[in-house]
Amino acid sequence: MNLTFLNKKITGILTVVPKNEVKFEDEAANYNFPIEKSIRLKKIMGYNKHRIVDEETCVSDLCVYGLEHLIESKLLNKDEIDALILITQTPDYFLPPTSNIIQGRLGLKQDMICMDVNQGCAGFLLGLIQAFMLLEQDSIKKVVLLNADVLSRKTSSKDRNSYPIVGDAASVTVVEKGDNNTPIFGNIKMDGSRGDTLIIPAGGLRMPSTPETSKLEDTGDGNLRSKENLTMDGASVFNFVQTEIPPMVNDLLEFSNVKKEEVDYFMFHQPNKFMLEKLADRMEIPYKKMPNNIVANFGNSSSVSIPTNITFNLGKNMQEESYKLCLAGFGSGLTWSSMLIEVGNLGFCDIIEY
């Protein structure tokens, strides 16, 4: 599905990461593998360290902290927020919506829209699409897009497939009406038939939590996880990314009539260094134009990885320069999406610690 938007712009991006930083070597003994083999895996995949929350911290805590920072710094006027979109797969509760909790904690106005969206690694793109559509309304002038997950709390610390890469974080992206006619091009695809490729089997109403679902077990790959933990079919995810993402991005460039060489940066979701290097090779994109260093420094924070990619690798330059960016997210759902957008001259583009 191809999409086009006009007169919309991103005016600020903030990433919030936990202060707690854990190195791969400090956790290697937790895994049911010889440490030497784990260290070899670290080098191949680009593992190094990740940021994880404590067992009390929730999505709303990270989001409120980021928003309060912007409000207190006078970078965001809370009375001007007309819509709050939260993309998360780890909400505070089944109900009420976590976006409403955030609105209440901040004392935002009642004349606004609060919306939770259950999406993962493609969630930044899906959130931007939703924000652009809301901005078509005359009464909505400023949308705050929140992406946040604390997936470390739903991932087994004895699962070497997933735990070393998972990172917790939140991002605040301000999206507003613009007066620039430069179009924003996007596309999106979904395939629910492959939904079990990335899944937390238990804990919902299909398979409620029980003492049995919380027991750690070896599911045949040497890792220990329970049915209440994130389960990832690594080989299927790798094949999905290598097969589906190149044609999606090529279709986007053809749809937008933009040549690959005209794109300044390909700011993609960050699964791991190995997968991104293989993807860059397949797409014939120089590594310097497709950064792959987020997992090594912060971990894979699901839908927050693209904003983190931007704030970490471009940072203050985004406040003074403008770049033609190709964004791409891909993951649970399965969902994959890409977008071609001019971003720059931002009011803020920072990373802060919670």
Score class of each variant (00 low, 15 high):
M1C: 08
N2R: 09
L3W: 07
T11C: 00
E21G: 12
V22M: 10
K23D: 13
E25D: 11
A29G: 13
N30L: 08
S38T: 13
Y47I: 07
H50C: 12
H50A: 10
R51F: 15
V53S: 10
V64I: 08
I71Y: 10
K78M: 08
D82S: 03
I87M: 15
T88L: 04
T88D: 07
T90R: 08
P97H: 14
S99K: 06
I101F: 03
I102S: 05
I102G: 03
K109P: 08
K109E: 05
I113K: 06
C114N: 13
L125A: 15
G127Q: 09
Q130P: 11
Q137R: 12
D138R: 09
D138N: 12
K141Q: 04
D149M: 09
L151C: 07
R153F: 05
K154F: 06
K154M: 03
T155K: 07
P164V: 01
A169K: 08
A169H: 06
A170W: 11
A170T: 11
G178S: 03
N181I: 12
T182D: 13
T182L: 11
G186R: 00
I188R: 13
R194S: 15
G195T: 12
G195F: 11
S209M: 09
T219E: 15
S226G: 14
E228Q: 10
L230A: 05
S236M: 15
V237F: 01
Q242E: 15
Q242Y: 12
V249H: 01
D251A: 10
E254K: 04
V258D: 05
E262Y: 12
Y265R: 07
F266M: 01
F268Y: 12
P271L: 04
K273H: 07
A280D: 10
D281G: 11
M283Y: 04
Y287C: 10
Y287P: 06
K289C: 06
M290I: 10
P291G: 01
N293Q: 08
N293D: 13
A296W: 07
F298L: 03
G299K: 09
N300F: 05
I306V: 14
P307F: 00
I310P: 00
F312V: 04
M318C: 02
Y323K: 02
K324P: 03
L325C: 02
A328I: 03
G329L: 02
G329D: 05
F330A: 09
F330Q: 08
F330K: 13
S332V: 12
G333H: 06
W336Q: 00
S338E: 01
S338D: 02
S338T: 08
C349T: 04
C349G: 00
